[in-house]
Design a protein around this nucleic acid. Structure first.
Lengths: 390, 390
DNA sequence: TAATTTTGTGCAACTATTTACACAGTCATT
DNA sequence: AATGACTGTGTAAATAGTTGCACAAAATTA
């Protein structure tokens, strides 16, 4: 069968395609619409196709389309190539650029969209990456608890999926466990830049990081509650996986602030992984003497305090003030609206992506690890009020 | 300078690397750690490196590592190759497989993590893709309103970013506008399978789809409210961009159900893009006569009803019942907990990915467009109660 | 007029990997 | 003893695209 489009169509049809059908061919992986011995249409066109159509060599087409040494080509040739490219809807193949230059303009993002804070981080990463024509591959580790029915994901496999696709860098929210550290070495040993959010890896990994200024956050909350006259304060914390997780830091710094004030006290309760948050919140609110304020380590935990208060017929903020952390999307719509520490997720994402791109482009070749610490701000709403006189 | 690792290191050092520094070389894009004329370490190793280290040819190494025709190789050769690969931490380069076979095991996902429903969709897509060693590239269009400071993203550029990386298919939540339809043609003309969530494209695009059974949802809500004795019902809707958006369908089907019952009536108010939801909700709750129940087209809209009720000193559900849609993460924690129609986001994502993979693997070559319609279920909570006698 | 420069284009080699095919050596069968 | 089959490995061509160099023709200069 003679082919209308390609010299090699015969090769193609004998090798892979079933004659008369739509088929995908080995070593000529355009989708050919074949009918009655004629190839009717082609899915993807290559530079070779463009060059053939314009009757020039492949390098010439390449240079003209990339506008390299444009002046060295006659106007006639230039137009021939541009017309052919437009007609064939040519699009460059970045995979080839990837194997040639070793940079794929792709970033592995190992951050799960847990809640609106993380979603906005993803937005920030996305928006910044595409301004430099980079693209994120979103893979996640250890999110099985809430959604996945397929059980936990193999961390190492996930990292390999990224390496195999030759990503230029990784932004991650690292599970803080020794074995994950080992997996991280897979990246650093191949000199793939890593940027961590919310946790700093040990310096030998050479990973940049962006973290929240937990101490500043603790100061904001402590000052706010102390100014309102609260002295018996409870903390509903999240148990982190390690001694220096954000949850631990959030508690420690807060306790430090409260301890510095004579007459003020803080007692902390930590929610373990599968513990019932409502029960813990009730435990706090039924303590004797009852705390006049509760600082929850996240807005999600603050919800439990609201539920517990409702069950115990306590009014917020009249009987107990509540402060959350993160200012998630629902915080402003709780009743009463929740006072919370705002983390600027979009900005975190933006700066994370910016920093990683700068690192990839070699801007810090001389300097060491870059660490960004993000400030946060207190958003005062209706869930906090002066401590009642007693 | 003689090189310890590569024959071509001289070439490399003269071309790209600055001697004595860490540099990235053209056409030998390993990161070489060069010091005092010696290459100390290498970032990425290729099959060629493995073959060289094992003292065999490249094809031999390829076959042994892929376990092709393993029996044809002597045990000695096999072990040599495996040892070398392990020592050099060799990882296959999927970019090459991509240009050879035309399949990159990468899916473009144009779904924004708006809220917990969409987050769980992303989880479902992710978990299903990685079981077949596919990977998602998450790009978004038109999310500028809430987060982006950089203005709206160019849809066409986003699609080109995916095409240029030769994704095998696209899952998208399509902006329902004529010009986006045109962009979609970029994909279909190249025979890239497209699967849409929440909206069916016109059949000429040949896109598979997965949608929520809006009619069933409307029936569930209508039956629930009618059974509770409600007859004056309001609908707080979202204005869709087109006549057949989910928002429009959600309203229409609900109105149809209510209209079928003598004595029952429904009046609808639609929230335009930048309209104040609270004002609209107050308008509904101050109507005369006041509706005894409000059906909000989403949980986010239901929040406005809660806020409006609080301002107007109306109690939920005693004075007015409220129903939402989607069962977002915060619905169960509202006070009172919100009755809502549960959309199984994780399942939507799972089935979307499964369907697209099947399409890519040619399982529907003979069949036409596949359309999955997902059922939803009503989750009855504390925000709905029998209509008060009046 | 001859030599040199400029213009315009193509060839070959290069990035990494796979696959068809070839080919030498060994063993068994006729 | 010769033929055929099998074993174990290598060569070359293929996927797409970029880049250094070569080279012819035209234009300019000496």
């Amino acid at each position: 069968m003679r082919c209308l489009f390609f010299k090699k169509a015969i090769f193609c049809l004998t090798k892979g395609c079933e004659y008369g059908k739509i088929g995908l061919c080995k070593y000529l992986h355009k989708t050919l619409f074949v009918s009655e011995g004629k190839i009717l249409a082609v899915g993807v066109s290559s530079l070779k196709d463009v060059a053939q159509a314009a009757n020039v060599s492949v390098p010439t087409a390449s240079r003209i389309l990339r506008k390299i040494n444009l002046t060295r080509f006659s106007e006639e040739t230039r137009n021939k190539v541009w017309d052919a490219a437009a007609k064939l809807r040519y699009r460059p193949n970045m995979l080839v650029k990837g194997i040639q230059t070793g940079t794929t303009h792709t970033i592995g993002v190992m951050v799960p969209p847990f809640d609106s804070y993380w979603s906005s981080i993803l937005y920030g990463i996305h928006d910044t990456l595409i301004t430099v024509d980079f693209v994120p591959i979103n893979l996640w580790v250890r999110h099985g608890d809430n959604f996945s029915s397929s059980g936990p994901v193999d961390d190492l496999e996930q990292i390999h999926r990224l390496i195999d696709r030759r990503i230029d860098g990784v932004i991650m929210w690292p599970p803080i466990t020794p074995d994950f550290y080992a997996h991280n070495e897979e990246l650093t040993s191949r000199n793939v830049p890593v940027l961590t959010i919310d946790h700093e890896l040990p310096p030998e990994f050479g990973a940049d990081s962006i973290t929240t200024n937990e101490e500043h956050g603790a100061q904001l909350v402590a000052k706010h509650l102390l100014d309102l006259g609260h002295r018996r304060i409870a903390h509903l914390g999240d148990v982190g996986l390690e001694t220096y997780s954000w949850a631990q830091r959030r508690r420690m710094f807060f306790e430090k602030e409260i301890a510095a004030v004579p007459g003020a006290s803080c007692f902390a309760v930590e929610k373990r992984k599968n513990a019932d948050g409502l029960e813990l919140a009730k435990k706090i609110l039924t303590a004797d003497p009852r705390p006049t304020a509760v600082y929850a380590a996240s807005d999600l935990l603050a919800r439990y305090v609201y539920l517990a208060a409702a069950e115990l017929k306590l009014r917020i903020p009249e009987n107990v003030s509540v402060v959350g952390f993160a200012d998630l999307d629902f915080a402003a719509y709780m009743m009463p609206p929740l006072t919370s520490v705002r983390q600027k997720g979009y900005e975190v994402g933006r700066r994370a992506a910016k920093l990683l791109i700068d690192r990839i482009q070699g801007k810090f070749a001389q300097n060491g690890i870059q660490s960004i610490v993000m400030n946060c701000e207190l958003v005062v709403r209706g869930s906090t009020a002066p401590a009642a006189k007693q």
